[in-house]
């Protein structure tokens, strides 16, 4: 069934978009990521302009992450205090990000920067996650117990001032790395149309040593808050949030996310991380290939101003 999108200004197949939302929603529930890094490229591939795709995905991420966050809330697997600090930092970051977004679009280098950022972050995070999870899987296979987290085990991030106690995460750390992570994720989120869960989750685990059980719920709360603000900012600055598109994606996404969250409970953590790492790497490689191989069409058109209304 074809449905006309009022902001994207083109008709799309409703079931195709719904299916995309559901599939990405399933993965987002499974891995505790927003899924934006998959959805935005998918939408652009189906003919929706990058600006509308990025902004509408932002709204969709709000729905899927709030839905999944609710599930974790019921299981009491969220550190609200930590999430709160991350949201405040994330909002600052996404304001900066929306500004950079508009600037890059004026210079015609938005696509390039998006591609390079995707390659860099997806490659880096995917690679790190993959090596770590493979090591963990090998360790379990050999019957060696996973290295236990000792209270005294600290890295440089724990030596900074302005310490804050996070009871739920059993942490006593400086707020500086937390704010830095939040701002960074906020900038990336609004630039790339992603929640940033795939960066946030490993950052919280490896940098701050937040317990794995708490990490996903907390990052979901952070994503809900940051992306909600990013949606309002994108809509106010770029008028590019398509409500109809976002709604179809949301309905598909939340349904998929419910099943994903349930499926996630059946799979071991290290295996989940390995699967997510492969997915992240695959998307990153896809962007790298696009940057390096000779494109079929060297030219592109951008409408600057028009009377079309």
């Amino acid at each position: 069934m074809q449905i006309y999108l009022p902001i994207a200004e083109l008709p799309v197949n409703m079931f195709l978009i719904f299916g995309m939302g559901a599939a990405v929603g399933f993965l987002s529930g499974l891995f505790g990521v927003g899924g934006g890094f998959l959805l935005t490229p998918l939408l652009i591939f189906s003919g929706i302009s990058p600006a509308v795709a990025v902004a509408s995905t932002t709204a969709q991420v709000v729905a899927s992450s709030s839905s999944a966050a609710l599930t974790y809330w019921r299981r009491r697997m969220i550190d609200l205090k930590l999430a709160g600090v991350l949201v405040v930092a994330g909002v600052i970051g996404s304001s900066i990000g929306v500004g950079i977004f508009s600037m890059l679009r004026r210079f015609g280098q938005l696509d390039l920067v998006i591609s390079i950022l995707y390659v860099t972050f997806l490659g880096l995070v995917g690679g790190l996650m993959l090596t770590e999870s493979i090591r963990a899987i090998i360790n379990t296979r050999r019957g060696r117990p996973a290295p236990l987290r000792r209270p005294g085990q600290h890295n440089w991030a724990h030596g900074l001032p302005f310490k804050m106690r996070f009871k739920r995460s059993k942490l006593y750390v400086s707020v500086i790395p937390i704010i830095a992570i939040g701002v960074g994720i906020g900038i990336l989120g609004s630039l790339l149309g992603i929640g940033g869960g795939f960066i946030l989750v490993p950052a919280l685990i490896y940098l701050l040593r937040v317990p794995t059980s708490i990490v996903i719920g907390t990052s979901l709360v952070q994503m809900t808050g940051t992306m909600a603000v990013a949606t309002v900012l994108q809509s106010g600055a770029n008028h590019s949030v398509d409500g109809v598109l976002a709604l179809i994606l949301m309905v598909g996404g939340v349904i998929g996310a419910q099943f994903g969250a349930r499926a996630g409970a059946l799979v071991r953590g290290d295996q989940l991380r390995a699967m997510l790492a492969l997915l992240v790497l695959a998307v990153g490689i896809r962007f790298l290939v696009n940057l390096v191989i000779t494109p079929a069409e060297l030219y592109s058109l951008t409408t600057l101003a028009g009377d079309a209304r």
Partner: peptide
């Protein structure tokens, strides 16, 4: 609405998103 009252429109989208998420839950 999206072009004249972007921030309001964005806020409506967010409310819609959170409602959808909650309803699914």
């Amino acid at each position: 609405l999206a072009h004249g009252y972007g921030f309001l429109y964005g806020a409506i989208c967010v409310v819609l998103a959170i409602f959808t998420g909650w309803l699914a839950g």
